[in-house]
Design a protein around this nucleic acid. Structure first.
Length: 232
DNA sequence: TCATTAAATTGTT
DNA sequence: AACAATTTAATGA
């Protein structure tokens, strides 16, 4: 099921160079990460990693879209958050040395980078900029989950879609690619736990408010701040 | 390059 | 969940 084939490292180098923590690393550190990090292609619906597995890697999404969630015995799934291209996840379980708590499933064909835990811990011990990045990263995610609790309480689908989109755009702010994210309304529904039809309606509402623009197969954010604050 | 077809995505019921 | 309309991608002349 999982495609374990590795791809050329040239793609990996380009991906790492755009990571905010990459430039401050020493040449030796960069060389180690580049040498040890592996790239896999995950087909739509495939597992990037599974709940209960030993945590052996820090995981970055090169392109595509990955959903973090849990699965119960009866196969019911709950979406926790989406990981867009350029973002990393799994540091929480790496730091605590525990089994993986969530599934990560590719919502579309994706390329994923796996950094071994030894390399991750080396950076953690040696690089202050890396620690600084992680601190901001963790703080950002904490804010996301607080936002989740709020929007789940309100249970207004418009709000859920809005906050979900705001998360997905967070990491994409740094690249100058513009505030465009290629995502279908169906994928957005899977992420925010709302039916595709309801996503469609919510997007129209948000577009009418001037928060974003909807195009075929992609969404353009016009006002990220107001999108985050939507409903509050 | 253009026209035709298939597939994907969206909008509505 | 099902359907029709629309957009993109692929194909071949």
């Amino acid at each position: 099921m999982n495609d374990l084939s590795c791809t050329a490292t040239s793609n990996l180098a380009a991906f790492l160079e755009q990571a905010p923590w990459w430039a401050p690393l020493s040449a030796g550190q960069q060389a180690r990460v580049l040498a040890e990090t592996q790239v896999r292609r995950i087909a739509t619906g495939g597992f990037v990693c599974r709940k209960g597995e030993a945590v052996s890697h820090w995981i970055g999404v090169i392109d595509g879209l990955v959903r973090l969630g849990t699965h119960s015995a009866d196969g019911k799934i709950a979406s926790l958050t989406g990981i867009p291209a350029g973002a990393w996840f799994g540091e929480g379980s790496l730091l605590k040395d525990e089994a993986r708590r969530y599934d990560a499933i590719a919502l579309r064909d994706s390329r994923v980078a796996y950094m071994p835990r030894a390399a991750f811990h080396a950076l953690l011990g040696e690089s202050i900029p890396f620690n600084r990045f992680l601190l901001g990263h963790l703080n950002e995610r904490l804010g996301q989950f607080i936002g989740t609790l709020e929007s789940q309480r309100l249970a207004d689908p418009d709000v859920r879609v809005a906050t979900c989109l705001a998360w997905l755009f967070q990491p994409n702010l740094y690249p100058a690619t513009g505030a465009q994210l290629r995502i279908t309304q169906e994928e957005l529904g899977l992420l925010s736990g709302v039916s595709r039809q309801r996503v469609n309606k919510a997007l129209k509402t948000l577009a009418a408010d001037g928060l974003l623009r909807v195009n075929y197969g992609c969404v353009t954010i016009l006002d990220l701040d107001r999108l985050r604050a939507f409903g509050s």
